[in-house]
Structure formats: structure tokens, C-alpha cells
């Protein structure tokens, strides 16, 4: 165990955990905003897959990382238009339509990968960028301030989302629509418009999450996400529909996963317990979820389409 508590190992473990948590955080933040307005989107994983593929394909074709990430993000927005149209405008059953979006994303990204790419090729990824003055702080500098720009962006979005939800009129409207859409409607708030906007934001974040996931591995593969989008939805419950809570949930999931890998590589976890240990991130997150879920209440009309009375 002593080997684990060395500067090099601790720095890399925490830094990797933060990087690994980033796709979860982005997807879960977007889902949080959507769920606060009453829309649950189970298609996050499929949208992440499409975002990841778009990023991969554009990078392969152009070699331009910024353009590739923008393509992944825009793919998320496009999927948001479809999701919002089905869930908000057509008022479809959100659970079923979300599964439909997921299956579409899984199948279509696989199809495009096979037809357009074929043999997988690695792409260049975003390099780590040190923050001047902070990246040289012993231990902490290497852990937190030598990450890629997408990691910084994801964690910056946490206070931004908190501010928007709690300190702006738009945020108040989102929460009002998620708690009592009829009352919000009677006060002149367009429920459909607010929900459209939150679904678009959520799906855009999911596309960006797919781009972040791709940037971590540097290569696309069929079902690249391995259901990370569904874990992101669970992390929204874990975080009690609050951006800061979601951030801690994402960090917990990412860090536990990397700590387990580190312990295996150092021989701290014996080979015989390897497969059991691999389930640790999910088990710990579920246990924490069970403990925390009772303490917070979900948005009152979560998952229910709004129809004006009379």
C-alpha cells in the first residue's frame, strides 16, 4: 500500500480519475438541466455515441481537433431537436422515446463507423494544458491543473449551471416548469419553449460528453460508451438534481474506477479478486444512491408531458 501513497502515483491516479469523470459530468449536467424542467432523457447514451463518432470522423478527415469537437457538440444539438420534438411537441411517453433515441444512436453510430471508417485508426487527442502558476503547486498542480481544455470546461460548467438554475429568471422558469407547469403556464411562461431549450442544452452537453470520451481514448469503437450515458442519468439522482452534487457523483465514479486499476497494477488487489473489484465503482455509486435518494425529492412532474387543462 505504501507504493500507492507516492507523489507520482497519487498525482496520476487523481488526474486520471478526474479525466475519466469528465464525460459523466458533462452528460449528467445536461441531464440535470433537462430533468429540472420535467423532461427525462434516457437517450443520453445514444447521443454520446453519435457525438463521439462525429468527433472521431471529423478529426480523421480534417485533423482539426476544434472542428471535430464542435461537430460532436453540434450532433448533440441536432439530436436534441429530435428528442425535444418527440418528447415536448408530440408529448410522447418520455421513457420509451428515450430508449428509442438510445437504440438509434447505438445502431446508427455503429453503422456509420463500419461504412465510413472500417479499420479503426487512432486520432490525435487534446493535450494537457497546464494553468500557469497553479500547475507547479506540488501534488495538487499535477492532479488538478494539468488537464485538457475539455476537463476544465466541464468543471467550469458546474458553477455556471448552478448560477443559471438558482440566480437567473431563466433558471427559476426551468424549476417552475419542472415543479408545477400549470402554474408557470398561468403566469405566462411557455412550458414548451422552456422544455425545448433545456432538452437542447442537455443533448448538446451529451454530444460534448461523447467528444470528451473520445478524446480520452483517442479512438472510436462500436458501443464506445459502454452505457456511460445511463450511469450519467443515475448520477443526476445521486446528485439530487444539483450541479455540485452531480459533480461529486461523477468524481466518485471516475476516481473509484481508477483507484481500483491502480491497486491492481500495484498488486494491492490480488488477481483472484480482480473481476470482483471491477464492479466496485458501480456498487459504491449504487449504495451511495440508495443512501442519498431518500433525502431529496425529484422534480414533481418529472417524465410527464404537459398538457394545458381545458
Amino acid at each position: 500500500m505504501n507504493q500507492f501513497f507516492t507523489v507520482d502515483v497519487l498525482t496520476t491516479t487523481i488526474a486520471s480519475g478526474i479525466a475519466l469523470a469528465t464525460p459523466f459530468l458533462l452528460a449528467a449536467l445536461g441531464e440535470t438541466i433537462g430533468q429540472r424542467s420535467g423532461v427525462i432523457n434516457l437517450g443520453v447514451d445514444g447521443i454520446m455515441l453519435l457525438g463521439a463518432f462525429s468527433t472521431y470522423y471529423v478529426e480523421l478527415q480534417t485533423g482539426n481537433l476544434l472542428l471535430a469537437i464542435l461537430a460532436g457538440t453540434a450532433t448533440g444539438t441536432l439530436m436534441g431537436v429530435i428528442t425535444a420534438f418527440v418528447s415536448v411537441t408530440l408529448k410522447a411517453e418520455q421513457g420509451i422515446s428515450g430508449i428509442g433515441v438510445y437504440l438509434f444512436g447505438l445502431g446508427f453510430s455503429s453503422l456509420l463507423f463500419q461504412k465510413l471508417v472500417g479499420t479503426p485508426l487512432p486520432i490525435s487527442t487534446l493535450p494537457p494544458v497546464g494553468i500557469p502558476g497553479l500547475d507547479s503547486i506540488p501534488l495538487i498542480g499535477g492532479m488538478f491543473f494539468n488537464q485538457s481544455l475539455l476537463v476544465y470546461l466541464a468543471f467550469l460548467l458546474v458553477p455556471v449551471a448552478t448560477f443559471v438554475l438558482n440566480r437567473t429568471t431563466y433558471g427559476l422558469k426551468i424549476k417552475a416548469v419542472g415543479e408545477n407547469p400549470a402554474a408557470a403556464d398561468s403566469l405566462g411562461v411557455s412550458v414548451a419553449l422552456i422544455r425545448w431549450s433545456t432538452v437542447l442544452i442537455g443533448c448538446t452537453f451529451a454530444g460534448l460528453a461523447g467528444a470528451a470520451l473520445l478524446m480520452y481514448g483517442g479512438i472510436f469503437q462500436i458501443n464506445l460508451t459502454q452505457s456511460e450515458g445511463f450511469i450519467a442519468v443515475a448520477l443526476v439522482y445521486f446528485g439530487a438534481w444539483r450541479p455540485v452534487g452531480v459533480m461529486f457523483g461523477s468524481l466518485l465514479y471516475g476516481l473509484v474506477g481508477v483507484v481500483i486499476l491502480t491497486w491492481k497494477s500495484l498488486g494491492i488487489i490480488p488477481l483472484s479478486a480482480s473481476d470482483l473489484a471491477a464492479t466496485a465503482p458501480a456498487v459504491i455509486t449504487v449504495l451511495a444512491l440508495l443512501f442519498l435518494a431518500r433525502r431529496f425529492r425529484q422534480p414533481a412532474v418529472l417524465g410527464r408531458p404537459y398538457e394545458r387543462e381545458g
Binding site: 410522447a92 422515446s97 430508449i99 428509442g100 433515441v101 438510445y102 437504440l103 444512436g105 445502431g107 455503429s110
Partner: peptide
């Protein structure tokens, strides 16, 4: 929506 998705998945 699920049917459309399944068609894409099948492809």
C-alpha cells in the same frame, strides 16, 4: 421512435 431506432440498429 423505438421502431425507427431498431431499424437503425438492425442495419
Amino acid at each position: 421512435a423505438v421502431v425507427v431506432a431498431l431499424v437503425a440498429g438492425a442495419c
